[in-house]
C-alpha cells in the first residue's frame, strides 16, 4: 500500500528549485547547505556576480548556471526555468531567493498545493493568516503593501503579496511563462502573465525570515518606483 502511494506521488527529484543569485557569496553557502538536504534538484543561476558566488555554489551538488554579465533577477529566473524545463524529468519548478529569507520546507508546502488542488501556480505569501513574519520593519511592510496594491491594480489578480520570492509552477505552466523584464519587475510580470494566460493559481502562506542581510538586499521605495516605471514603459517594443 505504501509503495502504491509512493508511486502515485511525484518523485521529489522532479522538483527543480531555482535560486537566482547576484553577489550572494556571504550567504549562498548557508542556503545551499539547507537546500541540498532536501529531495530536490537545485539550479543556482549566478547573475554575473563579481564575488565568488558561483565558485561557492560549485562546491555543492547543484547545477550552476553563470550569466556572462549581470542581467537582473528576472533574467536569472528565466534562465533557471529554461534550463530546468529542458531536463526531461522536470515536473515542478520552485523559485527561491538566495538571501536566506525563505524556509526550504515551504518548497514542499507549495508543491503539495499544486498536487492537491490542481492549480498551475502556487504563490508564497507572507501576509496570509497563517504566514509568519519575523523582524519585518514597518517601512518595509508598507512598501510591500504599496507594491502589492499597484500590482493588483495593473494585473487584476487577487493576491496579498506580489513580491514574494517563493513560487511554484507546474512544468506546463512554467513553459507558458516568458519573463522579459530583466530587473525586479519580473515579480509583477509573472503575475501579469498568470493573469493574461488565465492560469489557475493559489496563495500559500510561507515563512519569511527577515535578517539584517535580507533587509539590506530587499526592496526599497526606490525599487517600487523602478518597478512601476518598468511595468509602464518596459513594454515598448
Amino acid at each position: 500500500m505504501e509503495g502504491i502511494i509512493k508511486a502515485m506521488s511525484i518523485l521529489p527529484k522532479h522538483i527543480f528549485v531555482i535560486v537566482p543569485s547576484y553577489n550572494e557569496g556571504t550567504v549562498i553557502g548557508k542556503i545551499l547547505e539547507e537546500l541540498v538536504t532536501q529531495e530536490v534538484r537545485v539550479v543556482v543561476v549566478d547573475d554575473g556576480s563579481a564575488d565568488e558566488t558561483a565558485e561557492i555554489a560549485l562546491g555543492y551538488p547543484v547545477y550552476v548556471l553563470k550569466h556572462p554579465f549581470n542581467l537582473g533577477q528576472g533574467a536569472a529566473l528565466q534562465t533557471g526555468m529554461t534550463f530546468a524545463l529542458r531536463q526531461p524529468d522536470c515536473r515542478y519548478l520552485v523559485t527561491f531567493d538566495a538571501d536566506g529569507q525563505h524556509d526550504p520546507q515551504d518548497i514542499f508546502r507549495l508543491v503539495d498545493a499544486l498536487e492537491k488542488s490542481n492549480v498551475e501556480v502556487a504563490l508564497g505569501t507572507r501576509f496570509g493568516d497563517e504566514a509568519r513574519l519575523s523582524g519585518i520593519r514597518k517601512s518595509r511592510y508598507w512598501v510591500l503593501k504599496l507594491a502589492t496594491w499597484l500590482t493588483k491594480l495593473l494585473t487584476r489578480l487577487e493576491v496579498s503579496d506580489t513580491h514574494n520570492g517563493v513560487r511554484a509552477f507546474t512544468a506546463p505552466a512554467a513553459r507558458r511563462i516568458h519573463l522579459t523584464q530583466n530587473r525586479m519587475s519580473h515579480a509583477s510580470e509573472i503575475l501579469a502573465q498568470i493573469s493574461k494566460l488565465k492560469m489557475m493559481y493559489m496563495e500559500v502562506p510561507v515563512t519569511v525570515r527577515y535578517t539584517p542581510y535580507s533587509m539590506q538586499k530587499g526592496q526599497s521605495i526606490w525599487n517600487a518606483i523602478d518597478i512601476v516605471w518598468d511595468t509602464l514603459v518596459g513594454g515598448l517594443k
Binding site: V64, K66, L71, A75
Partner: peptide
C-alpha cells in the same frame, strides 16, 4: 537589443553548464 542580449547570455549560461 537588451532582449536579444539576454537570450544570447541565457544560452551561453545553459550551454556552458
Amino acid at each position: 537589443l537588451l532582449k536579444m542580449v539576454t537570450l544570447a547570455a541565457r544560452e551561453i549560461a545553459i550551454l556552458k553548464a
